[in-house]
Simulated assay, not measured.
Amino acid sequence: MIRCVWALCLSLILASCATTGNTPAGAPPMDAVQTQAVDAYRIGVDDQVQVAVWRNPELGITVPVRPDGMISVPLIGDVLAGGRTPPEVAKDIQEKLAAYVRDPQVAVILTELRSHEYLSRVRVTGAVRQPVSVPYRPGMTVLDAVLAAGGLTEFAAPDRSELHRRTGDASRTFEVKLDRILNRGDLATNYPVAPGDVITVPERTF
């Protein structure tokens, strides 16, 4: 139940960031990538989170995580958020609220990633004007990251670009057609990025 509510709220937050077009074979659905990225994110000090309790709006709060890693929730007091994922915090709050609310349904939503400057970054390398390591933020796409790197150089081979992602011990690579994204408006490979992703843009072979 927690995960269902969490997924619903997450989809509403990220809906405005969704792109159009067909997803290439072998690539994860965009909604799945976004959900996995945020579900796996470990909340840091000063990140801002929203706690929503279904049908109990008076119990909802939006607060930053304190230096001790805690947030204060109505009825139950302090709950540890720092170092945990949003679904883990939601489960803890739900279990504690069960003593006061019948069948509570809780969602914990990241509204501002303030600790991500040192926790989560996305890197762009290769034939871009300024290779960069930029802070991850919810809704960020490949195009956002490439633009943060100043765009492509005249020597780039944009349609041979790749997105590299590590999940646990596994590593996956996805083809990114940057020329189609930039010049044709084809957003099929404009994937949402996740913390730790690396985007590489090779140079043309002369």
Score class of each variant (00 low, 15 high):
43 I>M: 04
130 Q>S: 14
52 A>Y: 14
35 T>G: 13
9 C>V: 15
78 D>Q: 08
5 V>L: 14
85 T>K: 07
191 Y>M: 03
96 K>H: 08
198 V>K: 08
18 A>W: 15
47 D>E: 05
195 P>D: 04
140 M>A: 07
88 E>H: 05
120 S>V: 06
98 A>T: 12
116 H>L: 12
84 R>W: 11
162 E>C: 12
80 L>H: 14
129 R>L: 10
112 E>R: 14
160 R>L: 14
73 V>K: 03
138 P>D: 06
190 N>M: 02
25 A>C: 12
41 Y>C: 02
117 E>H: 15
58 E>P: 10
169 D>G: 10
29 P>T: 04
205 T>A: 11
70 M>H: 13
1 M>R: 13
192 P>T: 00
57 P>G: 00
12 L>R: 12
26 G>E: 06
194 A>T: 08
117 E>G: 13
34 Q>H: 13
30 M>F: 15
120 S>Q: 08
56 N>P: 11
21 G>C: 03
53 V>F: 04
159 D>I: 05
90 A>W: 06
192 P>D: 01
122 V>P: 03
162 E>D: 11
163 L>G: 01
127 A>N: 01
135 P>E: 06
128 V>T: 01
89 V>Q: 01
181 I>D: 00
40 A>L: 05
153 T>A: 05
35 T>P: 12
68 D>C: 00
128 V>I: 02
7 A>K: 12
79 V>L: 08
47 D>P: 03
149 A>R: 03
160 R>M: 13
23 T>I: 11
143 L>S: 02
17 C>D: 15
176 V>D: 04
119 L>M: 12
29 P>V: 00
136 Y>S: 02
146 V>Y: 00
74 P>K: 02
11 S>N: 12
199 I>M: 04
64 P>Q: 03
189 T>P: 01
8 L>S: 13
42 R>V: 02
114 R>H: 11
38 V>W: 10
151 G>C: 01
140 M>P: 07
8 L>T: 15
63 V>R: 07
138 P>F: 01
92 D>G: 08
72 S>F: 10
40 A>P: 02
122 V>K: 02
133 S>R: 09
49 V>S: 02
83 G>E: 04
52 A>L: 11
134 V>W: 04
28 P>F: 06
68 D>I: 06
56 N>S: 12
66 R>V: 09
188 A>W: 10
22 N>F: 13
62 T>K: 09
87 P>S: 04
57 P>C: 02
187 L>I: 09
106 V>I: 05
126 G>R: 02
108 V>W: 07
121 R>S: 04
95 E>Q: 13
161 S>C: 03
167 T>F: 12
175 E>A: 13
144 D>G: 00
81 A>V: 09
27 A>S: 08
127 A>W: 06
147 L>F: 12
153 T>E: 03
21 G>S: 04
3 R>Y: 12
11 S>D: 14
139 G>I: 07
100 Y>I: 10
170 A>K: 15
114 R>P: 09
140 M>K: 08
120 S>I: 08
116 H>W: 14
13 I>N: 13
74 P>N: 00
96 K>C: 03
